[in-house]
Amino acid sequence: MRNLDITTLRSFIAVADSGGVTRAAGFLHLTQSAVSMQIKRLEETLGVELLDRSGRTIALTAAGEQLLVYARRMVGLNDEVVSRLTDQAFEGEIILGVPHDIVYPVIPRVLKRFNALYPRMRVQLIASYTRRLQEHFARGECDLILTTEPTTGTEAETLTELPLCWVGAPGGAAWRRRPLRLAFGRQCMFRPKVIAALDQAGLPWELAVETDSDRTIEATVSADLAVHVVLEGTEPPQLERIDHGGALPELPAHFINLYGAEAAASKPVEDLVDLLRDGFRPAGAGRMRAVG
């Protein structure tokens, strides 16, 4: 196994960019002989000639042209790693607020990618209800928040629009019973729209659970004692979307809005914003792009 040395690759790039060993030596603050020795060592490692020395000026051979592409990528990646791990500017904390019901599946992937980019940065995740997160943000207690709202926010960036869907226990029958038993959080943004849709459809309903605990809601619904409503694609694994065949009213869409993006004060915050945008990008609109 032969290993390439970043220092020799850096010298090779300098020779290629400057058109000669002498100029490259001045750029690298090395002697001409030191640069020449590094190029020779690189050629011996690879077993190919990288420079065409037959003319008055030095040119790259075909192998040298091919190596140059890889060398730029390797040196660039080396410099990025060193910068991320040692630059004091990339230390600190970002406070991110996210509604309970949209933490999964996107946020864990976003946090994992962000940690790879900025291992010395800490993201403090606050999971709460939209109204509480808006209060935190208004008091300056969060750098960024996501919300689930029936409209686009006047001071927010809308990341996506998702329809609400009915969920219940796998193979459950609670959705067939009347009055329809509902499980909701006290501050759930979906609740008013769901109740309005039921009233408009003339379906009787009652609150089986009104709580501040998502776990209480999930336990009640998974026991087939009530039904719940979530944004499509955010169903908990122990619940399933109800195929009601029109027995329950269709529900309106809600928006996932991002607050704080315009005031991003640092490169890490900007990159976290980009990861959130990519994470909630509608299906078919493209894959997560590289940031950094």
Rank of each mutant, 00 (worst) to 15 (best):
A283Y: 10
T8A: 14
V230W: 01
D278S: 14
G26S: 11
V230I: 13
M189F: 03
L60W: 03
R131A: 13
L4R: 13
S128V: 06
L164C: 10
L117E: 11
L231A: 01
D274C: 10
L231H: 02
V110G: 01
Y70F: 06
I217W: 01
E218V: 14
V273L: 04
T22R: 07
R181T: 10
G172P: 06
T148N: 00
D271A: 14
A34G: 04
W205S: 12
E206I: 08
T31N: 10
P108T: 07
V221N: 00
D5R: 15
G140F: 11
G185K: 01
I126Q: 07
R131L: 10
R113D: 10
L111K: 07
T160Q: 00
P204K: 08
A223V: 10
A253W: 03
V81K: 03
A183E: 00
E218G: 06
R176F: 01
D224F: 06
T148F: 00
H244T: 10
L182T: 01
L198W: 02
R139M: 15
G233M: 08
D52A: 00
L251W: 04
L248Y: 08
L275I: 10
T211F: 07
R113C: 08
P170L: 13
A263C: 13
R56K: 14
E210P: 05
Y118A: 06
Q66E: 15
T216Y: 06
K267Y: 06
R131M: 08
H228N: 11
I13G: 01
R84E: 03
L46T: 03
T147E: 06
E262D: 15
T211C: 12
Q38E: 11
Y129D: 12
E240W: 07
A62H: 12
Q200E: 15
S222G: 11
L85N: 12
L42C: 02
I102T: 03
G55Y: 00
S36E: 09
E141D: 15
L162S: 08
L248D: 04
R277P: 05
F280S: 02
R122L: 07
A14R: 00
P108A: 13
D199E: 15
T216P: 01
H100C: 01
V273E: 02
A138H: 11
R122E: 09
F184R: 06
E43M: 10
A63L: 04
G233C: 09
L46N: 00
R178Q: 07
P237D: 13
